[in-house]
Nucleic acid binder design. Structure first.
Lengths: 227, 227
DNA sequence: TGAAAGGAATGTTAATTAAGGTTAATGCGT
DNA sequence: ACGCATTAACCTTAATTAACATTCCTTTCA
């Protein structure tokens, strides 16, 4: 699945160039020009990263960053602005930004910084060879085995992948869609029902430990909480 | 314990200023001027972050970054250099750098970027929101659970977010609009009615404790008072 | 000045729709 | 035939919309 960029820029000419340039690098870009429209676009598209101009009609980039931070404390945010003063940069980081790029900037630099942030914020997922501790259980992803004390349960392929995705993202929300794409490769209606079935199975397998819970977030996905 | 910075810089004058400036911010700084000495200093001090000049006697910064990456794939690395070309910057990220600062730079900017990277790499797995005490209740935002004594009520996603917003802002006015944006992402008519419904639900859940009240401030929003 | 009227904002409860959960039956490859 | 994966049928719960009630602020007029 493509990485989704929410790009907020009110200069149409610059905006178009940057958007196309990012798209040519296989990013899925949504551009918004008016500050007031950003939050609804944000909720709708659920971007992986936000690139914000600071000076905007409607609402400025700093305010937007603050609002985004309230909803998602982990989303990478890059400011791209003509404001070159150090104080402006500091403010950008203060409101929750993770990088600050002064205009004019080179496209290459933006792309490199976008990728850098995406990498930094991705979970350094335990290499799938290592066993993962899940409450009182221990999960061996490569062997599809779920252990608790002396009892052992062999998982099927789908069960194992699903559990691995959940375990890798403990305490974080996981999109239904993300799961569907990773386990089934598409998010059709039937696979979506299928996911329900597998969630039920995993809940059943894990019910011996009360500290473990797969919380449903209706309309969004799941959150796997342990302890 | 202080955050340890490994600072590699061969210009003694600049180096001294930066080092002292970082130390005045409570960082524990070790400065190395010769590229060849960096790796042993690295192994010895086990820094939390590295700030590298690129052009150095002995071994250049890019090479150092590569060597550091072999040992620690997650250590934040910032390049600080007089090389202003985009290609140099790209190379910096390619070899594993996480930020790139062109000389001359302001101390403030360096510090802000250092802190940003430290935060980004720490935030990783641990985002366990702490339980919030609400009068006689205890609310576990991660698990969407509201407890009072031995009784437990599981909240839905919307209920939980709303309660969290209220609880975070105990005794302060909260704009309706702010709530709507955070819970629904927009403040349309229907969602506004929706908010009323959820406020009613929370009032119902919390009515067992008389000290808790969700006060309506007509035309503004709500105030959540406890005790 | 203050009581009544009117209206907008909010409260409450219920009905509706949509999402997800559960269990069982079916399909399909080995 | 076995084991998993998929589809289906039916059930439960959350979220939204709707309908009607209330509150409280504002306006107006005695």
């Amino acid at each position: 699945m493509k990485t989704k960029i929410l790009y907020v820029e009110d200069e149409p000419f610059l905006g178009k160039i940057v958007k196309e340039s990012l798209e040519s690098r296989q990013f899925d870009v949504r551009m918004v020009a008016d500050g007031k429209e950003v939050m609804s676009a944000f909720m709708e598209m659920k971007p992986n990263i936000a690139v914000l101009d600071v000076m905007l009609p409607g609402k400025d980039g700093y305010t937007l960053a603050k609002e985004i931070r309230q909803i998602d404390p982990n989303l990478p945010i890059i400011f791209v602005t003509a404001k070159t003063q150090t104080e402006d940069l500091i403010k950008g980081f203060e409101v929750g930004g993770n990088d600050y790029l002064r205009k004019p900037f080179s496209m290459e630099e933006l792309i490199v910084r976008v990728n850098n942030l995406l990498q930094l914020t991705q979970k350094q997922q335990a290499s799938p060879k290592e066993n993962i501790a899940i409450g009182k259980f221990e999960f061996a992803p490569q062997r599809y085995e779920l252990r608790k004390g002396d009892s052992l349960r062999k998982l099927s392929h789908r069960e194992a992948i699903l559990l691995q995705i959940l375990a890798e993202n403990q305490n974080n929300n996981i999109d239904r869609k993300t799961i569907l794409m990773r386990v089934w490769g598409d998010d059709s209606f039937f696979n979506s029902r299928n996911l329900d079935v597998y969630i039920t199975k995993l809940r059943d397998y894990l019910k011996e430990d009360d500290a473990i819970e797969i919380i449903t977030i209706k309309g969004i996905g799941y959150r796997f909480v342990v302890g």
